[in-house]
Design a protein around this nucleic acid. Sequence first.
DNA 1: CTGTTAGCGCATTCAT
DNA 2: ATGAATGCGCTAACAG
Lengths: 339, 339
Amino acid sequence: MGSVSHVISGSVPVSRSLRRKVLWAIRTLDYHPNHIARSLKTRSTRTLGIVVPDMTIPFFPQVIRSAEAAARRHGYSLIAVNSNDDVVRQGEVLSLLRSQRVEGVLLVVASGKGSGKQIQQLIRSGIPVVCVDRLPAGVQVDSVCVDDVTAAETGVTHLISRGYRKIAIITGPLMLKNEQARLRGYEMALKRAGIRIDTSLIWEAKLDQQEVVQVCQRYLGSEKHKPDALFATNGVIGLGALRGMAACGLSTPEDIGFVTFDELTAEDIFRPSITCVMQPTEEIGCRAAEILIQRIQEKKDEVRTPRIEVRLPATLKIRESSSRFQAGARMALTSGLRR
Amino acid sequence: MGSVSHVISGSVPVSRSLRRKVLWAIRTLDYHPNHIARSLKTRSTRTLGIVVPDMTIPFFPQVIRSAEAAARRHGYSLIAVNSNDDVVRQGEVLSLLRSQRVEGVLLVVASGKGSGKQIQQLIRSGIPVVCVDRLPAGVQVDSVCVDDVTAAETGVTHLISRGYRKIAIITGPLMLKNEQARLRGYEMALKRAGIRIDTSLIWEAKLDQQEVVQVCQRYLGSEKHKPDALFATNGVIGLGALRGMAACGLSTPEDIGFVTFDELTAEDIFRPSITCVMQPTEEIGCRAAEILIQRIQEKKDEVRTPRIEVRLPATLKIRESSSRFQAGARMALTSGLRR
DNA sequence: CTGTTAGCGCATTCAT
DNA sequence: ATGAATGCGCTAACAG
């Protein structure tokens, strides 16, 4: 009976008695509407997809959660999948989401090459995409992420203000636009402080613990290159850097200052507590979902607003890993033992 | 053209030339099969759902990841949703998954009352459920989790072997079967060591940081109840306990021994490192997914094997939070200052 | 207001 | 080996 549909959707007036009968039937038969059939008809799944490189990296679940909450407020569900930071796999899951007819996708791109094509194809086929956190090079696409340049600049400037001068940066793959941006922020901070940029202090690593550790060991091992502080451009790299430092017998803040993007642990409990540039994860997920939903709406309304690029401010959390000159050895600074 | 279907599925022999033409068309038209329509016809979505209380708790993403990998090996996709540890919300998302016609669900139950009904309804309607990690009381359902009793017993026995005698336990809601089991493991360890069980040392808390901190403060504050060691039955509680201890000015291992379920941080880097009972997260997710898929298969084959309850062994990771008598103050033990 | 009907895109049968 | 015809469960449009 088609009236069931009317009752459920409420799109058409229905008499009280009929409504009651239908509701009763639904209950006793334990009827669950088949969203699949509905979707087939309406060509609307009210489902969004999000693909992240690796759900076990704390930053991503936080984003997913807030995106999910925002989606839910608008009557959408969100399904999450991992790309394992692999572009090929990413292609597969995008194809999957597409076959499942999600109405839009939030994408944290994998770090290899080729995401651009996938995104363009998706968009061309009518599925809006909002890139989150990471930005692929060479594609025009809506995006929400932290204000990378300013965030990095803030972190590095903080190190400078604490008396560090030979500051190294360890970044993820520089083919990601925002890794570039974070590097730019680093350079701007140094420039503004009148510190020469030393390219031997710019270390690029893959997003892989092992490699980060090796890179750190290589550079921190030689006294020549050894910086007095290190800035890491994301959480995975930051953790790897700490491990690398440990492998070289270096502690922070005693032997080396350290600031990283992202919170690494429960900083109130564990030592050393790490100064970090904290991203507004909640808001990133929320804004991204809302923009995506707006795009979906726009498609229905056949309007089209210009590209949206949201850059959210980060927060500097000052803790002990950047406090060598402050805490223990302030006199070293004032007495000029260190330049 | 219906032959397209034949080509894609390979279920019917197709001539080389025709196949080539179809394949070519698929490529140039950027055709993506509509899983939705396919599902409607075949009543098979090859999709699994997993609902967890909170994806931002590190344990869950790990389980999801391995479950997803296992599912993928069997040609299934996995979609993840949060219940916010709320039974009502859990009902909603289960209904959602059901409407999306997932073929089975992995469920980490929310800690309130009423999950049992939801599970039974789901199963009765033909959707297999495998409970993961947490077990609801009073329901017969397949499940995969750590061997709670033995795991807890191992942790507590370790504390005893390190010379701790007045050992408190802080648990999550005891309406969860496995919180009960962990408590039982605690009691068995004490009993076996000939230590009297003191109910004033058994503290129950909700799975809520704030509350855990309060509970700890309440009991750790009074010298009378103050234990010489604390055992926490899961990661959230463990973190809360550490915060509670800090709030009382207590450090581990100096003032109090501490062992918890689950890894709390990057233990190789941060101090104090915490002795923990580590769950085999990978295997939990993997086994759970495989059992679920097996159930789905069994339904198709119309066979029915008895209930499966997998209990996986945990691993004790000994670190410094349980080493007061070992490391710094061994003499205190040998000189008999402590009974 | 209520009941009937025609597809949505696919897989499956059944003719060719 | 191929293509045409049927319906999966639902919604939207329409007729009663």
